[in-house]
């Protein structure tokens, strides 16, 4: 694919790195499945948002909404891997198939939660899907993920983090070690351009994918179109380590239930639109309805369980 034939939009745009006909040549099942995972994460976060607004959640929540297309795509490629995420881990947890009830219970601080109520939103884990919990310090899980990849070469590792985490000094040590030992790890930067609210341009002049390439790791910088993310993840997974920098938009606050303003783009709405244009509108609407009802019913049941106590 020649990049020269394409328009070259700015890095902060929904079309950044776009390749023509990716969605159209993808199977319908694949497109619908990625959308289903996006729905799972989006509707979960909407419920968490609501519960937080109503004061039913007492702990801090870090919502994935707006960024869920990345985990939805990556989870179709890296299933069975060790999964390391950081504080904004709702989407990876749900898209890889983490337990819904244990997640809600964790947010509610119940002993039946996935961390027995100890960790809450930023620390979620699910051993069944090999998702390892995070303790809250950004990027600290990246060396840990790299160590896991070193010690267990029979498995693959996928490690999610944000554009702030890549500025941590130990992040470079981790990239270097992965490059030196050619470790089976896929690094995924969910680049929402914000450290809490400080934009990247105020923090640094350099690009993390350039740093990854300097270490000899194949790296790419793209927007969060799920077909595009999936395409590059598939290519990279054939020869790890690899590094995906994915431009995306956080829909809600850094922490808690609120919104800073309209996002630069809403990938969820763009994917809905794309599916309609591809003639999959009716199926997508059905998946959306079904997933929403499922998520809402589980939330309702768990909230009732809690209030009964």
């Amino acid at each position: 694919m020649s990049q020269a034939t394409l328009q070259s939009p700015s890095a902060r745009s929904a079309d950044f790195g776009a390749l023509p006909q990716l969605a159209e040549t993808s199977s319908k099942e694949n497109s619908i499945e990625m959308f289903r995972r996006m729905c799972l994460s989006r509707f979960f976060d909407e419920q968490a948002y609501q519960a937080s607004k109503e004061g039913l959640l007492k702990s801090l929540i870090y919502l994935s909404a707006g960024q869920e297309s990345i985990a939805a795509a990556i989870s179709t490629v890296m299933s069975g891997s060790y999964i390391f995420t950081q504080h904004r881990g709702h989407a990876p947890y749900l898209c890889f198939g983490g337990d819904l009830e244990k997640f809600i219970d964790e947010l509610l601080g119940l002993p039946t939660g996935c961390c027995k109520g100890m960790g809450g939103s930023p620390c979620i884990q699910d051993p069944k899907i090999r998702m390892i919990g995070h303790e809250g310090l950004i990027g600290e899980h990246v060396p840990i993920a790299v160590g896991a990849a070193y010690a267990d070469r029979s498995s693959r590792v996928v490690c999610f983090f944000g554009d702030g985490a890549v500025e941590e000094d130990y992040f470079f040590g981790a990239l270097g070690f992965a490059a030196t030992h050619k470790l089976p790890i896929l690094f995924v930067c969910e680049d929402n351009d914000l450290s809490v609210l400080t934009p990247t341009r105020d923090r640094r002049t350099w690009q993390i994918h350039d740093i990854a390439r300097a270490f000899g790791i194949s790296a790419i910088d793209i927007a969060d179109d799920p077909w595009l993310v999936q395409h590059h993840a598939q290519e990279m997974s054939k020869k790890l380590p690899g590094f995906l920098n994915v431009r995306t938009c956080r829909y809600y606050w850094h922490v808690g239930a609120g919104q800073d303003g309209p996002p630069e783009w809403d990938r969820f709405a763009l994917v809905q639109e794309k599916l309609r244009a591809m003639g999959l509108g009716a199926r997508a609407a059905a998946v959306e309805k079904e997933t929403k009802e499922h998520v809402e019913s589980v939330w309702k049941r768990r909230l009732q369980t809690q209030s009964a106590k």
Partner: peptide
Amino acid sequence: VSGPGFAIGA
């Protein structure tokens, strides 16, 4: 700083 992280991952 990252070295102990590698050990923890292992």
